[in-house]
Design a protein around this nucleic acid. Structure first.
Lengths: 240, 240
DNA sequence: TAGTGGTCTAGACCACTTC
DNA sequence: AAGTGGTCTAGACCACTAG
């Protein structure tokens, strides 16, 4: 941190944290990779080991790093399992988390609508990719999803079938780490197409979820609207 | 931490954290009160200032303490506003959080049912207090609630009308700080009594929330079941 | 001016993993 | 045995608040 073009009044541990976050976002430290030890980082940044530790602990709390005693510090890898555990909230009534299975998805490219431009902070005229699919829980269709992402960030997503766990793909192929998501939930009457896909009665109560997912830098990257049948699995969340 | 009946292999900062949490739970350090300085606590517990700081930072992250440079460390006061902001999740579609207004509540004391004993980890034969009420948002009935708490922890709650923000009362009168809550959400058809209380059609889709709230020591303290009309306000939550 | 928390340093020893 | 992170210590200086 010794070399700076302009004086930086942020705490050293904050500067170190941001410098390390940038290396991860830029792919200098790839997902799953081992990063240098505390001592090596302290030497490189010109600060004490304690200051590096504070930055490392911060990124660990943000689920960006993974520290293991005796082994080292790793860039947290977004696996299908881990991303589903963090952002897929369905569980049975005893709190045991469920995993979904994804059916075939249909993808198309089109101009962004006004509401999509607002949610994803896009300029006028920008394009989006829209993905529609049905996901199953325990073999039963349970979730109908419509996912919209900026086309420019996800070139090539149209070719081939996307996997069940999209966020692992986002990180592995596009270098985009999703670190938070804002969700809004409502109970609604199932529209005809949703009712048919889920195999429930027309107008049956379903859980509607609108989610905006954000990357490491805080930018909105995905808008997802889901209709969920909560008769078997429920939406589970812990407030702190 | 020098004096212990049995050897304690937990880290010192963990032991200090728990000792301080107990003082808050026992009312030795009342809500809003100033607690001793880092140096004074270090002397008292027989550990270094850095270890005390780690315990203080932990409780601060748990929203239990409030530290202000130059002034001191205070026990975070659960005000109606702060507790509603943390645990009441209704908002309008732009993400602006809403506050509820509570109508009259009916309270009764009875034996705990099997499911209640399980959720609240009660022994056989223990009693609970059951509170029923309707809450309004923007003047419109929006939430029907059934709240169950262990009678032994809340003696005297039956006398008088409980306030809208129960968790402030839990802390102020009973010394119980709620620090987390596990919620399960489902879309269901409104039962007849709920539909009538909310002024919606019989069988209309409503959001059903089952919440178990936990105190500083991790013990379950309240089981709350709510039916919400989400046609105007939505349930908003951020996943991290 | 005195006292507080916020930041930063430079060590030490321990527990765990790997070779 | 060597290297890692986890815990703990004992100082230092700074920024902020209050009398």
């Amino acid at each position: 941190m010794a070399i700076a073009d302009a004086p930086d009044f942020r705490p050293l541990y904050r500067q170190v944290r941001d410098a390390m976050a940038r290396r991860i976002a830029d792919g200098v430290w790839p997902p799953g990779g081992l990063i240098p030890s505390e001592m090596a980082l302290a030497d490189e940044f010109g600060v004490s080991q304690g200051t590096v530790r504070k930055a490392l602990d911060w990124l660990t709390a943000e689920n960006v790093l993974d520290r293991r005693q005796g082994r080292g510090t790793f860039v947290a890898e977004v696996t299908p399992e881990s991303s589903l555990f963090r952002f897929f909230r369905m569980a049975d009534r005893d709190g045991r988390r469920k995993s979904p299975q994804a059916g075939r998805a249909r993808i198309r490219r089109r101009a962004a609508k006004a509401r999509e431009r607002k949610r994803l902070e896009l300029a006028a005229g920008e394009e989006v990719l829209e993905l529609r699919r049905v996901r199953q829980i325990d073999g039963v269709p349970a979730i109908v999803e419509r996912i919209v992402v900026p086309a420019v960030r996800f070139e090539g997503l149209e070719t081939g079938q996307p996997p069940n766990a999209l966020y692992a793909l986002y990180q592995r192929v596009y270098g985009i780490s999703i670190i938070s998501a804002e969700e809004q939930l409502q109970a609604v009457a199932a529209p005809a197409d949703v009712a048919e896909a889920l195999g429930v009665a027309d107008g049956a109560p379903v859980l509607f979820i609108s989610r905006v997912a954000r990357a490491l830098d805080g930018a909105p990257v995905e808008w997802r609207r889901s209709h969920c049948d909560t008769s078997a699995a429920v939406y589970a969340v812990t407030l702190r």
